[in-house]
Amino acid sequence: MTSRWRKPILAVASFASVTALSACTSFSYTPTPLPPEASAPQPTSSASTSKPSKCANPLASYEPTGLLPTPATLPNGSTMAKIQKRGRLVAGVSADTYLLGSRNPFTGEIEGFDIDMVREVAEAIFGNENRYQLKVITAAQRIPALEKGDVDIVARNMTINCDRWKQIAFSTEYYRSGQKILVREGSKANSLNDLEGQKVCAPRGTSSMDNLIKEAPKAIAVPADNHTGCLALFQQGQVAAITGDDTVLAGLAAQDPYAVVPKQKAFTDEPYGLGFNERDVDFVRFVNARLDEMRASGEWTRIYNRWLRDALGPAPDPPRAVYGRT
């Protein structure tokens, strides 16, 4: 009996053991897998799908009352007096929009056209243009920062429009920008229509991207996180053109001798205003008075020349102040 069973058991057992051992001892591993290739980013338009609301005249701001008060004669209890008491003006700005507001890597200072506007306001409140503190904010943070009172003023290439008037207040227009294109030197394109079938970059989720998709549906829209990101793609030959506000494009062109903004008509109007908390009407009137002075004295033109003339050509007339908001 035993001898009869011992053999099959042995045969099965040794077969099983050899199989099991050889399975465990496979001599090579399966290759380490590679992560799947990231798919190319799709252009996305800005999140707001609602139609822009209409209002009588978005450019109309609060009219100054009388002459600009001096730092010594600020009305008691006014927003300006409170800022003066604190000792510094807090402004929300950009730090990577070359020529408007960007950090100078050599000095560490943030400087540009927008920053000079902040300096003018500080000068009006303190008699000292250096009494300001900058908070660098993203485009999306502009309105919340004002609503929460984190900043007194926003000077960050911000377009005045009816939607935004519902949440914040604006100064009179201090710069008239418009959307244009930037191309490689030697390119014959001077409008969006000339860029059919070519790759054009705009920042993700901005009105610049919306306009690009709307105005030039045959161009291939390529998104980047911001305009400087577009410049990097442009320098790497991944896009043929960049579209954005002419001021921003000027800042990009200034960083690359082979990037040019050809002579062209802007295909949108982007009136820039300084942003305020909607309750600080006295402050808006005060700043508007200062802007009027700057327009009249030639200070506006001097600031324009300092930052933008080399890139955008001789100074136009300063944008006209429009009042009538009550």
Binding site: P105, A232, Q255
Partner: peptide, 16 residues
């Protein structure tokens, strides 16, 4: 290279 010339696009390349 860009940062040595003081150009903001240098920061962009770094981020990239």
């Amino acid at each position: 290279a860009n940062n040595r010339q003081g150009l903001p696009v240098g920061a962009q390349y770094l981020r990239n």
